[in-house]
Structures are given as structure tokens and as C-alpha cells.
């Protein structure tokens, strides 16, 4: 033990040297900005920076747009997460069936949205949502009235939810597939021997085993949802959407900092986001356990 310790300390210099470049950038571009951002949230920022206590946070919580941005995020989650999880689970279970061919091929095609620029995806859908675009073309051909995709608050939210579902299914499918492949086949075999039906096996073995993965998915979606910016920014051309229906925490933060140029208030908004993200991550750590980190 002693010898090993001594032996390893010989390499400390080399270790530090190899980690140094990362450490340097980490401190300068992440650690210091994080601390600055925290300080900014308690400050008024003009020619000089003055500490003003909780004033920014008080202003933020009194701002109807701020409350609306959290409400919208919540609406988007309720609208998209259950459908996303249901469809991904369906695809993952089907792909995991023993005699399905072309698993890799299907998986790759489902995963494409996850590697594609969100700005590009939002722009394609912007074209689909055009008053005389492809979607309304289909609707009118079927005898329906054109849908006000981007001009009506209800449909504006639906438009965002559709994109979010389309973007996330592949990522979730791959995640669930990995989760399914981690369940040992012995459990199913002994259930088979006990005479459990396939349906029963699915609800008593598969779903409970996937619980940590589902939880991870919900939490990641929520954290990403708070920062959602590309989709609303492209669809609603840098506005808040009809009747503020598309303002997310990210949109509000961006506009507060770079259009209203109120860095203090924007930093306070950012830190409400940090607090929510940290709480959710801690919940995930606690319930999901370490197994999911790998």
C-alpha cells in the first residue's frame, strides 16, 4: 500500500501537466463565468457593477412574462413528454424483438434528428407550417379548414410540441433500447416458467426495469425545455409568439439580456434556471442511482 502510494505520486507531475490545458480553459471559460453570473444576478450592471441584493430576483418574480415562460415550459412538457415516451418505448420494444431484421438501420434513421441542427429542423417545419404550406395543403385536400399554425396561441404551442416530439423520439428510443438490453433474459425465462403472459411480463418486468431510464429522460427533457430557444426563435421570428404563447425561459433570458440589455435581471432569470436544473439533477442522482451515468 505504502509502496503503491509512493509509486503513484511519482507520476503526479505528469498527471498535472496533461490535465493542465483543460483545467486552464475550464477555469477561464466555465468556472469564472459561472461565478460572475451568480454575482451579476445580485447586481445592477451599467458602467460599473453595483451590488443591489435581491432586487433583480424580486423584479423577475413580479414580471408576468417570467411566470408565463415557466408556465409555457410546463405546458410544452405536458404536451410532449408522454407522447415521446410512449412512442419511443413502442419503437424500442419492437426493435428489441428477437427476430426483427434491420435493427441498426431503423435505429440509425430514428436517431438522425438527434444529430441534426435544431435551427435547421425548426426551419423545415417553418416551411411545413406556412399558411399555404405542406401541412395545410394536406388538411384542405382532406376537406378541412387551414390551420393557423403559427398565429393562434393554441396552435403555436402545438407547433412547438410537434417539433419537440419529432426531435426527441430517436434519442429516447436509443436510450430505452440500451435499457432493454440491460435486462437479463433470465428474469423473462423464469417468468415464462411461472406462466406469466407476455403482457404481464411487460408491465411487471420491462416497465419497472426501465423506470430509472424514463426518469432520466423526463429530467433531461425538462432541463432542455427550460433552455429551449432555437425552435421558438426560428418559428416566431425572435418574438414571444402570439399572446406570448411561445416564450420559454431561454427566450425571455435572451431578450432580457441582448434586447433590453438588463444583464442583472437576465442573470437572475438564469439562476432560477440553474436552481431548477440542479434540483432535478440531484433527484435523478438520488433515485436513478449511479448505474445510469455510464
Amino acid at each position: 500500500m505504502e509502496k503503491q502510494k509512493h509509486g503513484l505520486s511519482k507520476y503526479t507531475g505528469a498527471a498535472w501537466l496533461m490535465i493542465l490545458p483543460f483545467l486552464l480553459f475550464f477555469v477561464v471559460t466555465i468556472l469564472i463565468p459561472t461565478l460572475m453570473s451568480l454575482y451579476f444576478s445580485f447586481a445592477s450592471i451599467g458602467d460599473k457593477i453595483d451590488f443591489i441584493g435581491l432586487k433583480n430576483f424580486i423584479a423577475v418574480f413580479k414580471d408576468p412574462l417570467f411566470l408565463q415562460s415557466y408556465a409555457n415550459t410546463f405546458i410544452f412538457m405536458i404536451g410532449s413528454i408522454p407522447i415521446t415516451i410512449f412512442l419511443s418505448l413502442l419503437f424500442a420494444v419492437l426493435l428489441n424483438l428477437p427476430h426483427v431484421h434491420g435493427q441498426g438501420f431503423f435505429r440509425t434513421s430514428y436517431y438522425l434528428p438527434a444529430v441534426t441542427s435544431v435551427v435547421a429542423v425548426a426551419s423545415v417545419f417553418l416551411t411545413f407550417y406556412n399558411p399555404t404550406g405542406l401541412l395545410n395543403n394536406v388538411v384542405t385536400h382532406l376537406g378541412g379548414q387551414p390551420i393557423p399554425w403559427l398565429t393562434d396561441p393554441f396552435w403555436a404551442r402545438i407547433s412547438i410540441i410537434i417539433i419537440s416530439i419529432w426531435l426527441n423520439i430517436g434519442f429516447y428510443t436509443v436510450m430505452f433500447l440500451a435499457g432493454l438490453q440491460n435486462i437479463s433474459s433470465e428474469i423473462y425465462e423464469s417468468a415464462e416458467i411461472d406462466g406469466a403472459s407476455k403482457m404481464r411480463q411487460f408491465f411487471s418486468i420491462t416497465i419497472p426495469s426501465l423506470k430509472p431510464v424514463i426518469l432520466l429522460g423526463v429530467i433531461l427533457s425538462t432541463i432542455n425545455g427550460l433552455g429551449a430557444f432555437e425552435t421558438p426563435n426560428i418559428l416566431f421570428k425572435n418574438s414571444y409568439g402570439p399572446e406570448n404563447s411561445a416564450v420559454t425561459v431561454g427566450v425571455n433570458l435572451y431578450k432580457t439580456s441582448f434586447e433590453l440589455v438588463d444583464y442583472g435581471k437576465a442573470s437572475a432569470i438564469a439562476w432560477t434556471m440553474v436552481i431548477v436544473a440542479v434540483i432535478l439533477s440531484l433527484i435523478q442522482f438520488k433515485i436513478g442511482g449511479k448505474r445510469n451515468d455510464a
Binding site: T29, T34, G227, Y254, A277
Partner: peptide, 19 residues
């Protein structure tokens, strides 16, 4: 590093732009 992973990118845009 693990703690920093929890901080959303949005929290860094203002100081980053400032610097």
C-alpha cells in the same frame, strides 16, 4: 466538472459575452 455539468449554457452567455 460534475457540478458544472448541471449549469445550463444559458447561465454562461452573459458573462461570456461580457468577457
Amino acid at each position: 466538472v460534475m457540478i458544472a455539468r448541471m449549469v445550463p449554457q444559458f447561465a454562461l452567455i452573459i458573462p461570456t459575452f461580457y468577457i
